[in-house]
Structure formats: structure tokens, C-alpha cells
């Protein structure tokens, strides 16, 4: 395959604290996410889902095991390598984490600005394209304060996609939204990710969106307990 698998995790373990305070939160995690695949990760609170996401997102240094993200082996990666890797990963957070002082367009452009070799006008144009793609073409110059929760999360998706990521990580992106809006957002995310051939790993508690996944991963107490293929959604 030309494209490396977005995620290949082999025997990944992680623990917080040292000495008697040491607590193992991830044990022997093995899984992979292929290009264009949408994988949902579920599990009870505190089982280590966010920790796994921060490891994959190169936000934390890897302690044990092997983790290849977009072909980069994280065990050997330094700070600079991890930062450059992060530029190729789109992240969507539980809160929208938009920059409050920027308009929707500027927020998305913060993502596009990471792209090398594009002029200012091109990056600006792309930001507008992405906002249109998430259905906010008429809200370009609104600041986050003036947008609804669902609109903010759409801007966050546009920002994450604007950097042309090969992998999207999302941690409970629908937690702050009502059920119907949440499902719309995830449907949008799934459609756009498929179009881009971008792998998706999404943590969720929301049972109404599980059917949107290509695959479900269930976690309990730091271990993956299930690894089953979900039924392919119709659209």
C-alpha cells in the first residue's frame, strides 16, 4: 500500500505516576486503523480512552510497546518529530477549543496555515471551502461566541480537516451537543473523512452513533476487550 496505515499499535502500555503512586492505565493494547476507516472507541469512564488518544496524537511520550502513526514510529520520535507528526493529524476535542478572538474563517485558517507552500490567498480560500463543506459558508465572520454549540463543533471539524490530515482523532466530539445535532456532526465527519481517505479514531459514549462506525473498539480497565466489525452503514 502507498499510504501507511494511520495507526498500528502493538503491545502499547502506559502508566501514570512513579513508585507506589504508579498506576497502569493501558495494558497491552493492539489495534490498527486503516486509511479511510472510521473506528469508534467506547468504554466506561476512566478506562484509559483519552490516554490512548493522547499517545496516538503524539501529545504524550510513549512508554512501552510500539506505536506507528502515519508511518512514524513514536518510540523513537523526539519532540520535533512529534510536533511535525501532529501537523498531519487532525484533532477534535470535547470542547470545541476554538480561538475565541478569531472568526470562524480565521479559526479554520489557523489549520490551513500549517500547510507548506501555499500562498495566503490560497490558504484563505481553502478555509472558506471547508466552512462551506461543513455548511457554514454564510457564517464566515462570526466569532465562536456568536455560534451555536453544533456550529462551533462544525468549525472545529473544518479546522481539523483544513490541515489535510491523514488521521483524525476525536474525543467525545458530541458530548456537548444534543442527540440529533451530535449525530449530524458525526455523519458529517464520517462523510468528509471518507472523501479525504483519512482514518478516524473517535472516542464516544453516545450509543446512537455507533452504527456510523466501520469498526468498534471496546475498552475496559486499560485493555481492549472486543474487536468486532460493525455493520456497514447505508449512507
Amino acid at each position: 500500500m502507498a499510504d501507511p496505515a494511520p495507526i498500528v499499535a502493538t503491545n502499547v502500555s502506559h502508566s501514570y505516576g512513579t513508585g507506589s503512586m504508579r498506576r497502569e492505565v493501558l495494558q497491552d493494547i493492539n489495534f490498527r486503523v486503516d486509511p479511510g476507516e472510521v473506528v469508534l472507541l467506547t468504554g466506561p469512564s476512566g478506562c484509559g480512552k483519552t490516554t490512548l488518544l493522547t499517545l496516538v496524537g503524539a501529545l504524550r511520550s510513549l512508554q512501552h510497546g510500539e506505536l506507528q502513526v502515519l508511518g512514524v514510529p513514536l518510540a523513537q520520535a523526539g519532540r520535533g518529530d512529534r510536533r511535525r507528526l501532529r501537523q498531519r493529524i487532525g484533532m477534535i476535542f470535547q470542547g470545541h477549543n476554538l480561538l475565541r478572538c478569531l472568526t470562524a474563517e480565521q479559526n479554520v485558517q489557523m489549520g490551513a496555515d500549517l500547510l507548506p507552500g501555499l500562498s495566503y490567498a490560497q490558504r484563505r480560500g481553502q478555509a472558506r471551502e471547508w466552512l462551506r463543506a461543513v455548511g457554514l459558508g454564510d457564517q464566515l465572520s462570526k466569532v465562536p461566541h456568536d455560534l451555536s454549540g453544533g456550529q462551533k463543533q462544525r468549525v472545529a471539524i473544518a479546522r481539523a480537516l483544513a490541515a489535510h490530515p491523514r488521521l483524525l482523532l476525536a474525543d467525545e466530539p458530541t458530548a456537548a451537543l444534543d442527540g440529533r445535532t451530535g449525530r449530524e456532526i458525526v455523519e458529517l465527519l464520517q462523510r468528509l473523512a471518507r472523501e479525504q481517505g483519512c482514518g478516524v479514531l473517535m472516542v464516544t459514549h453516545d450509543p446512537r452513533i455507533l452504527d456510523l462506525a466501520d469498526r468498534l473498539l471496546a475498552m475496559e480497565d486499560g485493555r481492549l476487550i472486543e474487536n468486532r466489525v460493525a455493520s456497514m452503514p447505508a449512507g
Binding site: R86, M91, G95, N97, R100, M110
Partner: peptide, 15 residues
């Protein structure tokens, strides 16, 4: 005030 936003930018890959 903007600490979470700066952290977000770092997570996005800004040096």
C-alpha cells in the same frame, strides 16, 4: 486567559 487555546495550537502542531 488563552492558555487552553495556546495548548490547542501546540496540539495542532504549531511550534
Amino acid at each position: 486567559d488563552h492558555l487552553p487555546e495556546y495548548a490547542t495550537l501546540m496540539a495542532m502542531g504549531y511550534p
